[in-house]
């Protein structure tokens, strides 16, 4: 039995018998795996007595549930109004070119995910990118990426 199935059974067992717990269950699963693995979804549907379609319908309503594994580093390029004015389109294009990823894609080695988001609420820093949970001004995406990659190498050295 896969890890996703075993872990999901444990998570579901914690909530079973209570109403309105589906989102909590999914959050816990995502917290554990970084996304919602299909085998986990099947377990939830079966155990909670909802159809798989309904479960995916409900989960896909929320932008922050993910259905595929995500990269170790998640780059979110802000596409809000202020960032747009300050050239976020070019920022996204640059990241896309450098990483070889289209918007919403994850690199096959699971190191990077590139996403566009609407507004992260730091318009003063526009154009903004969020790298994992940190906010940066992305006036020079190339430099940011270089720093990121260096940091990664450094991590590996230790």
């Amino acid at each position: 039995m896969s890890e996703a199935v075993t872990v999901t059974r444990e998570i579901v067992a914690k909530y079973k018998g209570r109403e309105g717990v589906l989102t909590h269950i999914l959050q816990d699963i995502q917290g554990r795996f970084g996304y919602l693995p299909p085998e986990a979804m099947e377990v939830v549907a079966e155990e909670m007595g909802v159809s798989l379609a309904e479960l995916y319908g409900m989960a896909s309503f929320y932008a922050r549930f993910y259905f595929a594994p995500r990269g170790k580093t998640v780059i979110k390029v802000c596409r809000g109004t202020a960032c747009h004015v300050r050239g976020s389109e070019r920022v996204l294009a640059k990241f896309s070119e450098e990483l070889g990823l289209k918007e919403g894609e994850t690199s096959p080695d699971l190191s990077f995910t590139l996403e566009a988001v609407n507004c992260v609420g730091c318009c003063a820093l526009a154009p903004v990118v969020m790298i994992n949970e940190k906010v940066f001004t992305a006036s020079d995406p190339g430099k940011l990426l270089a720093a990121l990659r260096q940091g990664e190498n450094r991590d590996q050295d230790h």
Binding site: S51, L52, A53, E54, Y56, M58, S60, F61, Y62
Partner: peptide
């Protein structure tokens, strides 16, 4: 077979 629903939002 109950395999359809509205997806996304």
């Amino acid at each position: 077979a109950d395999i359809l629903d509205f997806m996304k939002r």
